[in-house]
Each structure stands twice: as C-alpha cells, then as structure tokens.
C-alpha cells in the first residue's frame, strides 16, 4: 500500500517536472521579431559567374552606380547560345537586370534575372538566332537596391551587336 502511494507520488512529481520543462522551453523559444525577415528575396540569375575587376575594397567607395559600356558586342551568328559579358561591377549598391532590345525592330531578345555586384552573365541564350550582320541594340539595365529591393536609377546603354 505504502509502495503504491510512493509510486503515485513519484509519477506525479515526474509529470510536474515534465510540464515545467515544457513551459520553460516554450518560454525561452526565440520569438519572430518584425524586421528579422529579409526585406525582399531577389530572383538571382543562376548563370551568373563571379567576375572581379581587382577593385580595392579598402579604397574609397564610389558613390553611385558603375555602368559598363558596350560600344560593340560580337557574337556568333545563326545560334541562340552566344557568349557576351553582361557585368554588374563590384561595389555597386544594387542588383542589375539586363534586357537586350534590338532597336530597329523594338524586339527584346534577352532578359536576365538579377545579377549581383561582382558577377556577370557570360553564357546568354537569345530568344532567336541572329543572321550575320550588325544590329543596333539597347542594353536596358534596371537596378534593384541590395537592401530594400526598391528600384534605383537605371541606364540604357546603346550598342551594336555584330553577328559573325
């Protein structure tokens, strides 16, 4: 009888301890704080490769957005898979999204996803192959802030695509 009572008290004690442990665990669980989650999730270009230009990170940061110029882009004719260098220079405060538009036809032949600073898209799949020749084109660079995902100033870079 006495033993039964002891077992009952012991089991009650264990139950109480388990309940206390559960309450303590729940109490100490880190709470989701507003603002902990990233402001936005960038849709990154999977084909982008790291491309550094030896910029000295300790040097004075450039205030602004570095835009690479493309006087001429030479690509292989009669194929959709071409090589070019669509680059977001190191140190920029934003993602780049590249859109290539053939200006004569106002035809978009390529749109990238977001390219991080210090990366470049080198293997580009065009929406159609270009015959041999020269094509006036515009590379539209849309920018998205790294921190809050808001648009920043952008650039339209005029170029000539030479398919050969």
């Amino acid at each position: 009888m006495k033993n039964k009572k002891r077992i009952l008290i012991l089991s009650d004690l264990i139950l109480v301890l388990v309940i206390i442990a559960v309450v303590i665990c729940f109490w100490n669980k880190p709470k989701a704080v507003e603002g902990d989650e990233p402001a936005f999730t960038p849709v990154l270009e999977p084909n982008a490769v790291v491309q550094t230009d030896g910029m000295d990170q300790t040097a004075e940061q450039i205030e602004g957005i570095r835009i690479p110029g493309y006087p001429r882009i030479t690509v292989e004719a009669d194929t959709t898979d071409v090589i070019m260098n669509l680059k977001n220079p190191e140190g920029n405060p934003c993602y780049f999204t590249f859109e290539i538009v053939l200006t004569d036809e106002n035809e978009t032949i390529y749109v990238s996803k977001m390219v991080e600073p210090g990366k470049a898209v080198t293997n580009v799949t065009l929406s159609r192959a270009l015959n041999k020749g020269e094509y006036p084109a515009m590379i539209k660079i849309t920018t998205t802030s790294l921190t809050d995902g808001l648009p920043m100033n952008g650039a339209n870079v005029e170029t000539t695509i030479v398919a050969q």
């Binding site: 450039i62 205030e63 602004g64 957005i65 570095r66 001429r72 220079p89 920043m152 650039a155």
Partner: peptide, 12 residues
C-alpha cells in the same frame, strides 16, 4: 584593343 568604358551614375 576593343573600345570599352565605364560610367558612374548617381544612385539616388
């Protein structure tokens, strides 16, 4: 040597 350039524009 192919021509090339880089322009810095104001961000905001």
């Amino acid at each position: 040597v192919d021509p090339s350039y880089e322009v810095v524009i104001p961000s905001y």
